[in-house]
Amino acid sequence: MFHQTPARSFTLAVVLAALVAYATFGGFFAREIVIEIAILAILAISLDFVAGFGGMVSLFHGAVMGLSAYGYSVLTAKFGIHPIPAAFAGIFLAASFGAAVAAIASRTSGIFFIMATLAFGQMLYTIIFKSRWLGGDDGMGGIPRFDASWIGLDFNDSLQFAIFAVFGIAVCYGIAALLLRSAFGRTMCGIHGNEPRMRALGVSTWKHKTAAFAISSAIAGVAGVFAAQHTQYISPELLFWTVSGEVLIVVILGGLGTLVGPVLGAAIFVLLKHEVGNYTDHWHIVVGLLLIVTVMAGGRGIYGQAEHWITGRSRKARESLNA
């Protein structure tokens, strides 16, 4: 069951403030890193929503993000449609695809569910990779960012776009947290806890899981719109299954089922990639070692482990006070 504890709100506020500060004072390269973190964080929130709370681990969130990015890019760059309706269309496309896949896959569970999502994700990758109209493996360029001049902002400025992306994390986190605290989210946690019993209580669990996946895919779609606007160029690589694998690692590293953990995980992952990448191309080794350590420590992830220690300590302190 999801609880937005003060510790979680505090951690989120600290991470977001640190990202804004880093973008503000860190120069152009820092801003690029912040945007990269924001895209990964939003994708990680969307994955944690279904995997951490719904028990549905997916390997197609990268494909969903890519689909939304392609939807946005085709509408804006090829058809000249205004970026804002195009963004909504991209997100809607992602949600529809997520719902369609989940409607089929959520009749299975566990490893079969993961394999089904992997298969559908790879299908989408292959279709886009082979499509000459979409640029094939060359990808597509000329993608515009949102025009925010009507509120006096310029998203072609890297600082303003970086702060906009951090704002995107906050909004997506807020939406996910509100949904997890709604009846819908409670029921989803219940399905994760004991699906047959939930069905016996009168809940159509596969419809519920399908709806949960549609919501998660919509959030992944938001990450896709940011991804397309960030580099203003997209390629099928965005949909490849390793992207989904990477975001799964981020979620586990940060803390599966904590919602704020994946945001922290995204920041750590991207920073490690760039910092270690300065010294060696084999930065994956460091991430891998860190992942092994967190998994061996109890599998709670970095944030989850910290939360576990703190609540354990405060419980001990309370008990010694009572004794």
């Binding site: 709604s182 009846a183 819908f184 409670r186």
Partner: peptide, 18 residues
């Protein structure tokens, strides 16, 4: 969880059944 399901309130997205 059971009570919300019995009342068909398990799908609300804007309100907390609890």
């Amino acid at each position: 969880l059971a009570a919300a399901a019995g009342l068909s309130k398990e799908k609300w997205i804007a309100r907390d059944s609890f």
